[in-house]
Simulated assay, not measured.
Amino acid sequence: MTLQVTNLVGGYSQIPVLKEVTFDVQNGELVGLIGLNGAGKSTTINHIIGLLTPFKGEIKINGITLNQDKNAYKKQIAYIPETPILYQELTLKEHLEMTMMAYSLDRDKAWKKANHLLSIFRLDNKLDWFPANFSKGMKQKVMIVCAFITEAPLFIIDEPFLGLDPLAVHDLLDLIDEQKQKGASVLMSTHVLDTAEKYCDRFVLLHDGTVKTEGTLPELRKALPDAGESLDDIYMSMTRADQHE
């Protein structure tokens, strides 16, 4: 098991946003983290990557907590944020080199992987460009390339399809599948439910800071037999039921 979140209570102030959140991501699995704005998806991710400290509960990656070994914990994570975060004074090449140093990667192997990814995302002739020269979609592709050269055991991907053209979305999904086949685990937050339904192995449905239900699509259908067949039907039915309580 790559990621284990147990009874997580947390947030940004003394009032908890997350309330006893528990779920896991197994080796070689893509889990969709689904929820409306404000459901707690980004808060959950920020706790996993170590930007927030839990009020209570525990987060382990391959049996290691952040407190036990910060460097070992963080090197197991490759993170692609919803909004690209790039250093304005560094070129694309320098971003890649910084990532290689941060993860202690073998430079020859890492550059071979990087050149392959740069070609896929049509960035191979832009190594000397600065972030100011990139569109939002291109910045997102830079984040994707930096994440996937690490070949980390856990990929955390927050709303990855925003700003990407259809070809890049397809390429990203292929990369995710490739890493899954190698045994990596992926936690992906997204509002694009039709894509999530097609590609995710399991789903964690967050609402108001709690896990309302989780499982494969057949398991969700069985748990909520009157909700509908699609992931969108199931989530909207559950959300509307809560609003009318």
Rank of each mutant, 00 (worst) to 15 (best):
A132Q: 06
I49G: 04
K70D: 13
A114K: 05
P84Y: 04
T65M: 01
I156E: 02
A102P: 03
S119L: 09
K109T: 05
K126F: 06
E97R: 14
F148I: 09
K141N: 10
N115V: 00
N67K: 15
G137D: 03
K60V: 05
I59F: 01
K70H: 08
N115F: 02
M101D: 14
A78D: 07
L90V: 07
L167P: 00
P131N: 07
D108T: 15
E82C: 09
L92A: 07
T150I: 09
D158P: 08
K141Y: 07
K139V: 01
S104G: 01
D128V: 02
K136V: 05
D108G: 01
P160D: 13
W129H: 15
L105N: 06
I157K: 04
N46A: 09
P81H: 14
C146F: 05
L162N: 12
D165W: 12
K136W: 14
F134Q: 14
K126G: 00
Y103V: 02
K139W: 00
K75M: 11
E97A: 13
P84H: 11
N133Y: 10
L117M: 11
K75C: 11
M101F: 14
P54C: 06
Q76H: 05
L90I: 05
K136D: 00
A168Q: 01
M100N: 01
L167D: 13
L52V: 00
K126N: 10
P166M: 10
C146M: 15
I80T: 08
A110V: 04
D124R: 00
A147R: 05
N115S: 05
L92K: 00
P166D: 09
E97G: 04
N125V: 08
P84L: 09
Y79A: 13
F161E: 02
Q68L: 03
I48L: 12
V142A: 04
D108F: 03
P84D: 13
E159D: 06
Y87L: 13
L105H: 09
Q88A: 15
W129D: 12
A102G: 13
